[in-house]
């Protein structure tokens, strides 16, 4: 059972929710896919048992062979190559590792080497296995790290897995939720929150994932997100109050569910609700249950990947997908005000 936690914007409480859900679900697995700003480890303070460098392929030039034809410079859509003073310069940090320059070089002067772009850390914190992806600052993409994290973290027995996604709705988020069985969308009950929620709502609909919303920093009053959810028929799974004590504990990187019974209760009942909803949506999708059972009984990781990629592809090739326009998103949020 894999639960992805996402939000349209950082700072809405995505990490608060995923960390505390993993804590109350223990034994469990927590995977931090927010590789640009991984914060989950600050809460779990795990003991690191293994590290793995993540590498990508970067071109290197054999200057003896290079004749200065500039085919590679012309081909590179990322402008990662320049040729001046009879010398080819390669800019690793702009390179997307597509391998095109090596293919087009008529002199076979280019080859590839491994370059580390970051690492994954695997650790334990009590009964929680903590997987953290860390992208080195300056690298073009964290997607290879997320691939590896999900491969490693999902292969951890029958424990529930909580995936802390990067904020937003970019391709890196798509990668993080590809294999998820359920998505939890965290939103603040504000006008901004409604607008940002709409973006991830479009995303999970696109991927045809069952999902529900958790409201964070709730005041007891009418708000645009409740309105948005009721208009769209979206389930609200739980509400976390606008609470000074909770905010203060969380800002000190404490797991609030470990600190106070009241908060433990809050996240336990949230988890229960999520599990119940997952059961309901799995019931309506028998295929989903079957593939879940297959995964749980230890199907190979590569098998899962292939399936997942295929699944996402069939959604993406749907002609309607490209028609999701931000301006439509915008006007809906405005109506809610």
């Amino acid at each position: 059972m894999k639960i992805a936690v996402l939000s349209g914007k950082g700072g809405t409480g995505k990490t608060l929710v995923s960390v505390n859900l993993a804590a109350v679900a223990a034994p469990s697995t927590y995977i931090d896919c927010d590789v640009e700003e991984p914060n989950g480890h600050l809460f779990f303070k795990p003991e690191i048992v293994r590290e793995e460098l993540i590498t990508v392929k970067i071109p290197q030039v054999d200057e003896e062979r290079c004749v200065g034809c500039r085919e590679c410079v012309r081909f590179c859509n990322y402008n990662a190559l320049a040729y001046v003073n009879q010398k080819l310069i390669i800019f690793d940090d702009v390179c997307h590792s597509c391998g095109g320059c090596v293919l087009v070089c008529p002199e076979a002067a280019l080859s590839e080497r491994d370059k580390a772009i970051g690492k994954i850390e695997i650790g334990v914190s009590g009964d929680v296995s903590v997987y953290t992806g860390i992208l080195n600052t300056g690298e073009a993409t964290g997607i290879p790290i997320i691939h590896r994290l999900l491969e490693e973290g999902s292969d951890d027995g029958n424990k529930p897995v909580f995936i802390d996604c990067p904020p937003g709705s970019a391709c890196i988020v798509m990668e993080s939720i590809k294999d998820a069985d359920y998505c939890v969308l965290v939103a603040e009950p504000t006008l901004f929150g409604a607008h940002n929620l709409n973006m991830v709502y479009e995303l999970v609909k696109l991927f045809d994932k069952p999902f529900g919303v958790v409201l964070n920093k709730c005041l007891n009053e009418e708000n645009p997100v409740d309105q948005f959810c009721s208009d769209k028929g979206i389930e609200i799974l739980g509400r976390i109050p606008f609470d000074h004590e909770l905010a203060s504990l969380n800002s000190s990187a404490e797991i609030v569910a470990h600190k106070q019974d009241e908060y433990r209760e809050l996240f336990s009942s949230l988890l229960e609700t999520i599990v119940k909803k997952m059961g309901e949506s799995a019931g309506s999708k028998r295929d989903g249950v079957l593939s879940d059972l297959k995964k749980m009984s230890g199907d190979t990781v590569s098998g899962e990947r292939g399936e997942a990629l295929h699944g996402s592809h069939s959604t993406c090739s749907d002609g309607s997908v490209k028609g999701v326009k931000p301006k439509e998103v915008r006007s809906e949020a405005a109506v809610d005000s």
Partner: peptide
């Protein structure tokens, strides 16, 4: 011609000047 590139514009612009 580098101005409209999405990434590495400085590199390509420097190439043009060189």
């Amino acid at each position: 011609t580098a101005a409209s590139g999405t990434g590495g514009a400085g590199i390509r612009a420097a190439q043009i000047i060189a």
